[in-house]
Nucleic acid binder design. Sequence first.
DNA 1: GTGGTCTAGACCACG
DNA 2: GTGGTCTAGACCACA
Lengths: 132, 132, 132, 132
Amino acid sequence: MEEPVNISIDLKLATPAYRQIVDAMRVRLVEEDLKPGQMLPTVRRLAMELSVHFNTVAQAYRELAEEGWIELKHGRGAMVIARRAPRPAENAENSKIFSERLRELVAQMRASGMDALHIAMELRSLAQALER
Amino acid sequence: MEEPVNISIDLKLATPAYRQIVDAMRVRLVEEDLKPGQMLPTVRRLAMELSVHFNTVAQAYRELAEEGWIELKHGRGAMVIARRAPRPAENAENSKIFSERLRELVAQMRASGMDALHIAMELRSLAQALER
Amino acid sequence: MEEPVNISIDLKLATPAYRQIVDAMRVRLVEEDLKPGQMLPTVRRLAMELSVHFNTVAQAYRELAEEGWIELKHGRGAMVIARRAPRPAENAENSKIFSERLRELVAQMRASGMDALHIAMELRSLAQALER
Amino acid sequence: MEEPVNISIDLKLATPAYRQIVDAMRVRLVEEDLKPGQMLPTVRRLAMELSVHFNTVAQAYRELAEEGWIELKHGRGAMVIARRAPRPAENAENSKIFSERLRELVAQMRASGMDALHIAMELRSLAQALER
DNA sequence: GTGGTCTAGACCACG
DNA sequence: GTGGTCTAGACCACA
């Protein structure tokens, strides 16, 4: 029942390790690679796999638990749970901020020299995945 | 000749003030709202407008200068310059990281309760702008 | 002679299962729903009813026995006994701590958005029950 | 502008230090001893005062920030902010749990030998404070 | 053996 | 000088 998480992190990046873990796992949770009911590796095991301290993984798990994706149980590991959808009330606010961040990220990609058409292709492919 | 920068930052956000400034200005530079030859407001003036310490703006300007967007002239402010495109050598590496960040950002948007179709629409609209 | 215990626990809560059992049973003991002489369900039966490991119930029973509420008889289950009142010697110290915890709990209720008057009503109703 | 926090914790207790700090400060925030706009001591200073590691205080502050009571700013300390009231939607659920915890706490007090009338008095006094 | 807490102290990011 | 992250490792609580 335990699932390999299949994520990788890069300690050289500016983004803190625990954030990278959270972000990577959130992708797998949203895309339902990790489904409710599945057990996650223990903090200590994932920590070994990623070559970080177990506290770092524990912090990531705690954050995911707070977001309502997983449940941490004393002595019994961590489990993916069915997440109640957040109310769309705050979205009016959030939506704007996220759109801005999207625009900023695209600008960053272009600034780094990526081809505009290539980026456009990626965006369309992401959009298509969402429309399924 | 001096251009209003028309950006706004939110000190309550987790993203540091100087990053917000850099990110917002990079959007305007990439999208060529700010064109080579135009003068930017002085560090102190922009700092006042945004209600931040002038060191914060100075750091943002320094970063933009490092990225090759602007030129700082001692005592005479900052000017947008024609940026030589970054060599696409780094791209193979960067491209992957950016794609991952894009995916993570979309996951975050979905996790925050935003409608998938709404996000898809945004992505397509960004793609379209890039293809022009 | 055996009494249904009529408690329920929630494994999703942060409070450990065994604590929930102890706390719930202590309420029933203090309020004398469970009276000296009555037999409690066996560790294994209560464990099944609550869907927890029997060790968890065993730990709860052990704690209640230590507090002087029940008596464990090897192989013959557990019985509610007449508890000698704890000497009020410790009270001076405990009283302060408990008052503080009461205050903290009320603060938590208010922080969670509960109506102040509603909380006050509850407190008065508890007080009234104590004065009978 | 900086305010003494005037809390004390007891490392001998089972409740973790950071929880004690959170609980004690929440009382002071709910009762508006600490008002929006006030600066809190830095994590390192409060840590010294309470004789704990600064990480312990940092964790407590982070929790209070998450609950919306305070704001942590890089390089600028922590400030009490005006907290948006939590929506009373979840209360139906919470209310029950909190009432149960109240009942359990009272049972614990009685079990520890505190005089029932004394407890009743305390409850009434808390109720009165809420009705003001 | 699980997750949780705490300490000690290094190093970084921010303003 | 502020808060944030991470490591190392001890010890505890839980199931």
